[in-house]
Measured scan of single mutants.
Amino acid sequence: VFVDDHLLEKVLELNAKGEKRLIKTWSRRSTIVPEMVGHTIAVYNGKQHVPVYITENMVGHKLGEFAP
């Protein structure tokens, strides 16, 4: 499973602090992992960042699938 390192670091850091804030990313190719559930990730679609709230059903899919 591929997840960009910088994105995973941000998610794990927020989980350690117990925070839930918006994470901006250009990494549409990253796979959604269970650690991301409950976070809102702003995924770049080529024009703007689209906020995507991550749920359990999204695990295993790519971030780009949810930012048309």
Rank of each mutant, 00 (worst) to 15 (best):
residue 1 V to K: 09
residue 1 V to Q: 13
residue 2 F to Q: 05
residue 2 F to G: 07
residue 2 F to L: 07
residue 2 F to R: 05
residue 2 F to P: 05
residue 3 V to N: 03
residue 3 V to G: 03
residue 3 V to A: 02
residue 3 V to F: 03
residue 3 V to H: 04
residue 3 V to M: 03
residue 3 V to I: 10
residue 4 D to A: 04
residue 4 D to R: 00
residue 4 D to V: 01
residue 4 D to Q: 03
residue 4 D to M: 01
residue 4 D to N: 06
residue 4 D to C: 09
residue 5 D to Q: 15
residue 5 D to M: 15
residue 5 D to Y: 15
residue 5 D to K: 15
residue 6 H to I: 15
residue 6 H to P: 04
residue 6 H to C: 15
residue 6 H to M: 14
residue 6 H to D: 14
residue 7 L to E: 01
residue 7 L to Y: 00
residue 7 L to A: 01
residue 7 L to W: 01
residue 7 L to G: 00
residue 8 L to Q: 03
residue 8 L to C: 05
residue 8 L to T: 02
residue 9 E to K: 15
residue 9 E to Q: 15
residue 9 E to I: 12
residue 9 E to L: 14
residue 9 E to C: 15
residue 9 E to H: 13
residue 10 K to S: 14
residue 10 K to I: 15
residue 10 K to Q: 15
residue 10 K to A: 15
residue 10 K to D: 07
residue 11 V to W: 01
residue 11 V to G: 00
residue 11 V to I: 13
residue 11 V to M: 03
residue 11 V to N: 01
residue 11 V to E: 01
residue 11 V to A: 01
residue 12 L to Y: 06
residue 12 L to M: 11
residue 12 L to I: 11
residue 12 L to S: 06
residue 12 L to F: 06
residue 13 E to M: 07
residue 13 E to H: 08
residue 13 E to P: 00
residue 13 E to C: 14
residue 13 E to R: 09
residue 13 E to K: 09
residue 13 E to F: 08
residue 13 E to L: 08
residue 14 L to G: 05
residue 14 L to H: 04
residue 14 L to M: 12
residue 14 L to N: 04
residue 14 L to S: 05
residue 15 N to S: 03
residue 15 N to G: 02
residue 15 N to W: 02
residue 16 A to E: 10
residue 16 A to C: 11
residue 16 A to Y: 08
residue 16 A to Q: 11
residue 16 A to S: 11
residue 16 A to G: 08
residue 16 A to M: 11
residue 17 K to M: 10
residue 17 K to D: 05
residue 17 K to V: 09
residue 17 K to Y: 07
residue 18 G to R: 07
residue 18 G to M: 07
residue 18 G to V: 03
residue 18 G to D: 07
residue 18 G to Q: 09
residue 18 G to P: 02
residue 18 G to L: 05
residue 19 E to Q: 13
residue 19 E to W: 05
residue 19 E to D: 08
residue 20 K to Y: 10
residue 20 K to V: 07
residue 21 R to G: 13
residue 21 R to V: 13
residue 21 R to W: 06
residue 22 L to D: 05
residue 22 L to Q: 07
residue 22 L to M: 12
residue 22 L to V: 13
residue 23 I to N: 01
residue 23 I to C: 03
residue 23 I to A: 01
residue 24 K to I: 12
residue 24 K to C: 15
residue 24 K to R: 13
residue 24 K to V: 14
residue 25 T to N: 02
residue 25 T to P: 01
residue 25 T to Y: 02
residue 25 T to M: 01
residue 25 T to E: 01
residue 26 W to P: 05
residue 26 W to E: 06
residue 26 W to N: 14
residue 26 W to I: 05
residue 26 W to G: 07
residue 26 W to Q: 07
residue 27 S to R: 05
residue 27 S to V: 06
residue 27 S to T: 03
residue 27 S to D: 03
residue 28 R to G: 04
residue 28 R to A: 05
residue 28 R to K: 06
residue 28 R to C: 10
residue 29 R to L: 12
residue 29 R to K: 14
residue 29 R to N: 08
residue 29 R to A: 13
residue 29 R to C: 15
residue 30 S to M: 03
residue 30 S to Y: 03
residue 31 T to F: 12
residue 31 T to P: 03
residue 31 T to Q: 11
residue 32 I to C: 09
residue 32 I to N: 00
residue 32 I to P: 00
residue 32 I to S: 00
residue 33 V to Y: 04
residue 33 V to K: 04
residue 33 V to T: 08
residue 33 V to P: 03
residue 33 V to S: 05
residue 34 P to F: 13
residue 34 P to R: 13
residue 35 E to L: 14
residue 35 E to Y: 07
residue 35 E to T: 09
residue 35 E to W: 03
residue 36 M to R: 00
residue 36 M to H: 02
residue 36 M to T: 01
residue 36 M to Y: 07
residue 37 V to P: 01
residue 37 V to L: 13
residue 37 V to R: 11
residue 37 V to N: 08
residue 38 G to F: 10
residue 38 G to R: 07
residue 38 G to A: 10
residue 38 G to M: 08
residue 38 G to E: 08
residue 38 G to C: 07
residue 39 H to Q: 02
residue 39 H to M: 03
residue 39 H to S: 02
residue 39 H to P: 00
residue 39 H to V: 02
residue 39 H to G: 01
residue 39 H to Y: 05
residue 39 H to E: 00
residue 40 T to C: 14
residue 40 T to K: 07
residue 40 T to Y: 07
residue 40 T to M: 10
residue 41 I to L: 06
residue 41 I to S: 00
residue 41 I to E: 00
residue 41 I to Q: 00
residue 41 I to V: 06
residue 41 I to N: 00
residue 42 A to F: 04
residue 42 A to Y: 04
residue 42 A to I: 02
residue 42 A to D: 05
residue 42 A to R: 03
residue 42 A to E: 06
residue 43 V to C: 06
residue 43 V to A: 03
residue 43 V to P: 06
residue 44 Y to M: 05
residue 44 Y to E: 02
residue 44 Y to G: 03
residue 44 Y to I: 05
residue 44 Y to C: 08
residue 44 Y to D: 03
residue 45 N to V: 06
residue 45 N to Y: 09
residue 45 N to D: 13
residue 45 N to C: 09
residue 46 G to R: 11
residue 46 G to K: 09
residue 46 G to P: 02
residue 46 G to M: 11
residue 46 G to T: 07
residue 46 G to A: 10
residue 46 G to Q: 08
residue 46 G to D: 05
residue 46 G to V: 04
residue 47 K to P: 05
residue 47 K to V: 12
residue 47 K to L: 10
residue 47 K to S: 10
residue 47 K to Y: 11
residue 47 K to G: 07
residue 47 K to D: 08
residue 48 Q to E: 13
residue 48 Q to C: 15
residue 48 Q to V: 13
residue 48 Q to R: 13
residue 49 H to S: 05
residue 49 H to A: 04
residue 49 H to G: 06
residue 49 H to Y: 15
residue 49 H to L: 08
residue 49 H to R: 03
residue 49 H to M: 09
residue 50 V to Y: 09
residue 50 V to I: 14
residue 51 P to I: 14
residue 51 P to Q: 09
residue 51 P to R: 13
residue 51 P to Y: 06
residue 52 V to M: 07
residue 52 V to K: 04
residue 52 V to W: 03
residue 52 V to G: 01
residue 52 V to T: 09
residue 52 V to P: 00
residue 53 Y to P: 11
residue 53 Y to A: 10
residue 53 Y to C: 12
residue 53 Y to L: 13
residue 53 Y to M: 11
residue 53 Y to N: 13
residue 53 Y to V: 10
residue 53 Y to H: 10
residue 53 Y to T: 10
residue 54 I to A: 03
residue 54 I to K: 00
residue 54 I to P: 02
residue 55 T to P: 01
residue 55 T to F: 11
residue 55 T to G: 12
residue 55 T to V: 12
residue 56 E to F: 14
residue 56 E to H: 12
residue 56 E to A: 14
residue 56 E to W: 14
residue 56 E to C: 13
residue 56 E to T: 13
residue 57 N to I: 09
residue 57 N to T: 11
residue 57 N to S: 14
residue 57 N to A: 13
residue 57 N to P: 12
residue 57 N to L: 14
residue 58 M to L: 12
residue 58 M to S: 07
residue 58 M to W: 04
residue 59 V to S: 07
residue 59 V to W: 05
residue 59 V to G: 04
residue 59 V to Y: 11
residue 59 V to C: 14
residue 59 V to D: 03
residue 60 G to P: 02
residue 60 G to N: 15
residue 60 G to S: 10
residue 60 G to Y: 15
residue 61 H to S: 10
residue 61 H to T: 09
residue 61 H to I: 10
residue 61 H to K: 12
residue 61 H to D: 08
residue 61 H to M: 13
residue 62 K to S: 10
residue 63 L to N: 02
residue 63 L to H: 00
residue 63 L to D: 00
residue 64 G to Y: 13
residue 64 G to E: 09
residue 64 G to P: 00
residue 65 E to R: 14
residue 65 E to I: 09
residue 65 E to A: 10
residue 65 E to D: 06
residue 65 E to T: 11
residue 66 F to E: 05
residue 66 F to Q: 06
residue 66 F to W: 09
residue 66 F to I: 06
residue 66 F to P: 01
residue 66 F to H: 07
residue 67 A to F: 04
residue 67 A to E: 04
residue 67 A to K: 03
residue 68 P to K: 12
residue 68 P to W: 08
residue 68 P to T: 12
residue 68 P to D: 08
residue 68 P to S: 08
residue 68 P to G: 10
residue 68 P to E: 09
